[in-house]
């Protein structure tokens, strides 16, 4: 062992790594919100849907939660061009992650729909609330509060684990940037120690903000770690 650590080299690349971190955040947030919209719809179909629509939502969840996100993204990036559809590596990663997140979020949100207490809704009805007011003041806040901790956890999972898959097909997010730079300067260990540190900081910032929002908006006593 005569390896000399040179962290200075890695720190010198911080600006480049932070560019990658921004792309990581972008991918994480876009995939999460896209997935959340799909999840809202999927959960509604699985809870209230009938026949083929309900079946379709079920099949979607089974397919995407039982195959690796990497395979889904590979399919989009390497498979679709055979059919004449060519998307950038960023687009393929985003779409893959979004579809994948949508499946998991369908299940998370379904738990929210199921947890709505029909008796509370009835009380709202007898107080004279219209259907829309019942949804706005009773149903949605209840669902939001119930699933908030699971949502917050899932966001961190996408942000840290999901987005880095993009590196494999050449997205210059945080991991991708680290690989690019390391192949030139050969400081793999230092680079990835620094990158791990940046991931921890990203996670910390995200968890802390989510915990504060949860506390403020839903009285959820979320743990930061």
């Amino acid at each position: 062992m005569n390896y000399t650590f040179q962290f200075g080299v890695a720190f010198a690349e911080l600006p480049e790594l932070l560019k990658g971190a921004i792309i990581t955040f972008e991918l994480g947030i876009l995939a999460f919100w896209g997935g959340a919209l799909i999840g809202l719809l999927g959960a509604a179909l699985k809870t209230y849907g009938t026949g083929p629509l309900r079946w379709l939502a079920g099949a979607y969840v089974v397919f995407f939660t039982n195959t690796p996100a990497l395979i889904q993204i590979y399919f989009l990036y390497f498979g679709l061009p055979e059919l004449g559809i060519r998307w950038s590596s960023f687009t393929c990663t985003l779409i893959g992650l979004t579809l994948n997140a949508g499946a998991y979020l369908t299940e998370i949100m379904r738990a929210g729909y199921i947890s709505v207490r029909s008796t509370e809704v009835e009380a709202a009805e007898t107080l004279g609330m219209s259907r829309w007011q019942q949804i706005r003041y009773v149903v949605v806040p209840h669902i939001a509060k119930t699933i908030y901790p699971a949502l917050a956890n899932f966001f961190i999972v996408i942000l840290v684990m999901g987005t880095s898959i993009g590196a494999i097909i050449g997205v210059d997010e945080l991991t991708g940037q680290a690989i690019n730079i390391s192949t030139e300067n050969y400081r793999w260990i230092e680079m990835f120690v620094v990158v791990a540190g940046i991931y921890v900081i990203l996670t910390f910032i995200a968890s802390l903000s989510l915990a504060l929002v949860g506390r403020w908006a839903f009285r959820v006593k979320a743990k930061v770690f």
Binding site: T119, E120, A124, H142
Partner: peptide
Amino acid sequence: IVFQQYNLFQN
């Protein structure tokens, strides 16, 4: 009406 189980809005 007031119900047996109160049915207050928990949120």
